[in-house]
């Protein structure tokens, strides 16, 4: 178990390094520097700017300095566009917002999805089952950027129940639509995976034994069926997490929640490479860390996995 975890960790660190190096090289090789604009800068000014941001150094030294800054001080350097702000400040401003509704969406997707899937499997071919299957098919074509305008149209413009955007320190009425928009398609996928894996589990021998020895159905489901049935769901959590991190960009832009995604898109439109790279690397680190946790969790639940 321990050696397995260490092995996974040993793979996670090079992954992160490769991500940093690749995005850095991409930026370095891009046509036009970060200070290219319609107004041609005098060569002396450009040289000074490049010296200030360390862009006159050879590529390998720039990369090493950058990685060293991240590793030792968690410092992503200064923004190329906003002269008085560092990437860290920009990230620190948006990150708590993204984290709040992101975690909430994740919990909602998992809890509602698993519940729906389990109930649908237990009551196979009932109205409830068809309802769950219908939702999970429909939600395939309702990703966050489709859900968001539909929700605003319904709840803000027609019904007038909820505000169409904003954050206000995370009051609940500002949270509802972002969470629904972000979690729906993942909730549906989790429900579908749970249902099919639960159906499979319920036909297994150990469930028949549990029923035969007279356990109440509730206990059979919760104690004996749920754990093996959760394995495919857990392996889906990694992709779901990536999807939600990515989806948060749409939520931030469409609902003006002020999260980190807005900073990313703004920096993309301004060609502020430093902020883009900072966000990309942070999100990459989160993803890699989360996948590590999922892998270890998976190994812990499924004793059949050999390390």
């Amino acid at each position: 178990m321990l050696s397995y975890s260490i092995k996974r960790l040993a793979l996670a660190i090079p992954t992160l390094l490769i991500l940093i190096v690749v995005s850095f090289v991409l930026m370095y090789a891009a046509p036009g520097g970060p200070f290219t604009s319609e107004r041609e800068l005098p060569p002396e000014v450009l040289a000074n700017l490049n010296a200030k941001y360390g862009l006159d150094q050879p590529l390998w030294r720039q990369i090493l300095t950058y990685i060293w800054g991240i590793v030792t001080e968690f410092d992503f350097g200064p923004s190329f566009i906003y002269k008085d702000r560092t990437v860290n400040e920009i990230i620190a401003q948006g990150f708590p917002v993204t984290l709040t509704y992101g975690l909430l969406s994740f919990v909602v997707a998992v809890v509602v999805g698993v519940t729906l899937g389990v109930v649908a499997a237990i009551r196979q071919n009932s109205v409830l089952d068809y309802f769950a299957v219908g939702i999970s098919i429909g939600a395939q074509v309702l990703p966050n950027f489709v859900m968001a305008p539909i929700l605003v149209l319904t709840f803000t413009l027609w019904l007038g129940w909820l505000p169409g955007g904003g954050w206000q320190g995370g009051q609940w009425e500002y949270l509802i639509m972002p969470v629904i928009a972000l979690s729906t398609s993942f909730m549906a996928s989790i429900a579908r995976i749970t249902r099919s894996s639960m159906l499979e589990t319920l036909n297994m021998n150990h469930i028949r034994t549990a029923r035969a020895k007279g356990l109440p159905e509730r206990r059979v489901i919760l104690r004996h069926a749920l754990k093996p049935a959760m394995l495919p769901v857990i392996s889906y959590l990694g992709p779901a997490f990536v999807g939600m991190i990515t989806g948060s960009v749409v939520v931030d832009v469409y609902f003006s929640t002020g999260g980190i995604g807005k900073a990313f898109v703004d920096s993309a439109l301004n060609r502020d490479y430093a902020v883009m790279m900072g966000v990309t690397i942070l999100m990459g680190a989160l993803t890699i860390f989360f996948n590590l946790v999922v892998d270890i969790l998976y190994g812990w639940i499924d004793p059949k996995i050999r390390y």
Binding site: L11, A12, P14, T15, I18, L19, V22, S23, L26, M27, A30, P31, V242, I245, T246, V249, F264, A268, R271, Y273, M276, M277, V279, T280, M283, G284, T287, I288, N291
Partner: peptide, 20 residues
């Protein structure tokens, strides 16, 4: 494995912004 662990959407946007 390594490439799949990277959140590709961000890298894709990075490529699109930098290379037109």
């Amino acid at each position: 494995d390594i490439l799949m662990a990277i959140p590709y959407m961000f890298v894709l946007i990075l490529i699109l912004v930098m290379y037109g």
